[in-house]
Design a protein around this nucleic acid. Structure first.
Lengths: 139, 139
DNA sequence: CCTTGACCCTGTAGTGACTACAGGGTGCAT
DNA sequence: ATGCACCCTGTAGTCACTACAGGGTCAAGG
């Protein structure tokens, strides 16, 4: 009954678009359970590991922190529990993303304004430098 | 001709909305030149430090990296140089910000979609968990 | 049998931009 | 003289990895 479908860390990493070091790091911080080892001490992963790592990667791609993913994984394992906590985590994350979005939007428009004023003369009358300087004071 | 206007690290920090530790850190990484010291070994800052730190903080607020600010400071000191390099740095940064903005926008809409589907029943049929799972496979 | 090369192992240190102590000294007011 | 706010240095921690260094394993080719 040995698993016919066990894979090395390299193929697990490849099939989830993850670096090998990152897989090992997920194990170290407890997101991914330690897999079985081969006679030569290689990690051997089964389909459950693949599923879990895919979950982690998808979560990261959606910008969840590792801590949030840890919580989501714990919740996902407890299938009878209400979905409310999951919803709370997701909404908190969305709020976070929307705050960052607003910040970046403001930032981009400030930058565009500063750049638009630059006539590309000498530094002495560069609008960009001036915009960064506190008082527009000469040197 | 001793500077009447020398300030301790605490008041410099306060007047630039910076933490004291951060000011010391800027000095350590060479953004802020080491100031004079009092008899009791306290750092004593003059108006030039205030100007420079303000520049740094404004740059950071606009999302420039410390490395970019280091370059901008070097350029700003060389007042006869053409403004071109400044413009290049600023435009590169804007491009960077715009990339992040696009990423975050996509992310937010994915998140909103996922969250919108959650009926908040049990975890077993939580759409959010499902959206994170690779195959929608049951456990 | 030997070597080459791709892969794997552990462990440590580095990234960026700070932040947070620990363990002390200074300066001023009460 | 004693309390308190402030300052000093130095080190370690944050987040999510990434990059080695210094080795071991394994399959294929000569």
């Amino acid at each position: 009954m040995r698993t016919a479908s066990s894979m090395t860390i390299g193929s697990l990493a490849e099939s989830t678009q993850t670096r090998v070091e990152t897989v090992r790091w997920y194990e170290k911080v407890g997101l991914l359970p330690p897999p079985a080892r081969s006679s030569g001490n290689y990690r051997l992963y089964g389909p459950e590991h693949l599923r879990r790592l895919s979950f982690i990667r998808r979560g990261r791609a959606l910008g969840f922190t590792v801590e949030q993913i840890r919580d989501l994984l714990a919740l996902a394992d407890d299938r009878d529990r209400s979905c409310g906590e999951v919803d709370t985590i997701a909404r908190a994350h969305l709020a976070d993303v929307e705050r960052k979005l607003a910040d970046l939007t403001r930032l981009a428009s400030e930058l565009r304004e500063v750049i638009g004023q630059c006539g590309c003369g000498s530094v002495a009358d560069c609008r960009i430098i001036e915009a960064l300087s506190p008082l527009g004071e000469p040197a």
